[in-house]
Amino acid sequence: MTTDTLPERLERARRGVAPGGRGTAPRQKRSGSPLARAGLTLTLFALPSLILLVLLNIFPVVYSFLQSLQQGTPSTLPWETPFVGFQNYIDVLTSTQFRDSAIFTLIFTVTGVFGSWIIGLGLALLLRTKIPGGAVFKVLLLLPWIVPVVVSSTSWNWLVATPQSPIPVILGNFGLGDVNFLGDPVLAQVVVCTFKVWISFPFMMMMMSSALASVDVNVYEAAKMDGATPWQAFTGVTLPIISRTTYISWVLMTIFCVNDFPTIFLLTQGGPVGATSSLIVRAYQYAFQNLQTGPATAIAFMMTAVLVIVSTVLYRQIQKANIE
C-alpha cells in the first residue's frame, strides 16, 4: 500500500503511471518549430538560385562602373583599356552637350509627369460620372498606351515630319506659313514632349481611376453640407485622399521619362542639332556612335543617382501620406 498523498496520486494519474511507479521523465521540447525547420530547408534549396540572381544583377553594375573609370570601346574588356579614374565624369559634367541634354531631360520629365497626370486625373474624374458610353470611351482612351511606340511614332512622323505633312499643310492654309516641326529645335522639343504626354496619360488615368474608386461618396456629401464648393472639395478632400497613389505614379512616371529612349529616338533621333537629345539618348550616342563607353556609362550612373534621390524624396511623401 502506497503512502502517497492525494495530489501525488492525481499527478501520477494525469501522467498515466500505475500506483507506486515512478513514471517517466518529462519529454524535452525539440529546439525550433516545424515551420522554422521547413523555412530553413526551403531557404537552403533556394540559396543557389538566389546567389545566381544576385550575381546576375551585380555583375553588370560592377562591370559598367569599371567601364566608367576607363577609356574604352564596347568591344574592349576592362583590363585591356587604360584607367582614367573619374576623368570621364569630369569631362561629361563640363561639356555643353551634357548641360543641354540635362536641361532637355528635365523639361521632358516635368512635362511628361505633370502633363500626363493632369490629363489623366481630369479624364478619371470625368469617367467617374455617369456618361453615355463611358466604358467605350475608357477603352478608346487606353489606345495611345496600348499601341506599340513604334506605330505611334511612325504616325506622328507622318503627321508633322515634313512641310507636306497634314498638320503643317493645315496650318499653312490658315496663313501660318511653312511650319517645320521637326526641323526647328524649339518646335521639335514641343512635339517630343507632347508625344510623351500623349502616350503616357492613359497610365495616369488608370492609376487615378483606381485611387478615386476608393474615395467614399459620403465624404463629398459631408463636405457639401459644410458649405464647401466643388473646387474646395477637390483640393481639400479628393487630392489628400489620393495623394499616396499620386506620389507612386509620379515616381514611376519620373523613372519612365528619364529612361525613355525609344520615344525620342524613333521620333527625332535626338535632333535637330541635338535639341531633343536627352541624357539616355546622349549616352547611346557616346557608346554606339562615338564608341566611347566611358562617358556613356558615366552618364548612366549619374542618371541613376538622380533617380535614387528623387525616388527617395517622393517615397518619404508616400510615407507621410500613409501616416496621415
Rank of each mutant, 00 (worst) to 15 (best):
K130W: 07
I118F: 15
P163I: 01
W117N: 12
L176R: 03
L176H: 08
L123M: 11
S210Y: 04
K130M: 01
S101D: 08
T111N: 07
P185T: 02
P185F: 03
S116A: 15
K196S: 12
A213Q: 14
L126S: 04
N180Q: 15
G183S: 08
S116Y: 05
G183K: 03
M205L: 15
V92K: 05
M208T: 10
S101W: 12
T111G: 15
V215P: 12
G112V: 11
L141R: 02
Q189F: 10
V151A: 14
V136I: 14
G177C: 10
S210R: 06
G175I: 03
V139L: 12
V215C: 08
F108V: 09
D216C: 03
L142C: 08
I118N: 05
S209M: 12
V149A: 01
C193Q: 08
L171N: 03
W156T: 09
M205D: 05
Q97G: 14
A135D: 08
N180A: 12
F181M: 08
L142F: 13
A213Y: 00
C193R: 09
S153A: 15
S155G: 14
L93R: 03
T96N: 11
A102T: 14
I146A: 14
P166E: 00
A135P: 06
L182N: 06
V149N: 10
F195W: 15
V192E: 12
L140M: 13
P144Q: 10
V160F: 14
I167R: 08
I103W: 15
S95C: 11
S165F: 06
T162L: 10
N173K: 14
W117T: 10
L212H: 00
A161N: 12
V191Y: 04
F174H: 07
S152E: 11
G120L: 07
T105D: 08
G133L: 07
L212E: 02
V136P: 00
C193M: 15
Q164H: 05
V169T: 14
L141K: 04
F114N: 09
G183Y: 05
N180F: 11
V197H: 04
S116M: 07
G134V: 13
L123D: 02
V160G: 10
C193Y: 04
F98V: 07
N173F: 11
A102G: 11
V92T: 04
L140I: 09
S165K: 05
K196A: 14
L93V: 06
V151H: 03
S200E: 12
N157I: 06
L140G: 04
S153F: 01
I167T: 08
V151F: 10
F201V: 10
V179M: 08
G134W: 02
G120N: 09
I107V: 12
L159A: 14
M205Y: 10
V191R: 02
A211H: 01
G134D: 01
D216Y: 04
A124M: 10
S210A: 15
G175D: 07
A213F: 00
S155Q: 11
V136N: 01
G115R: 09
T94R: 14
A213G: 13
N157Q: 13
V151Y: 05
A211Y: 02
V149Y: 01
F201Y: 15
P202L: 12
V150H: 00
M207G: 05
N173V: 02
L121P: 10
I146W: 06
I107T: 00
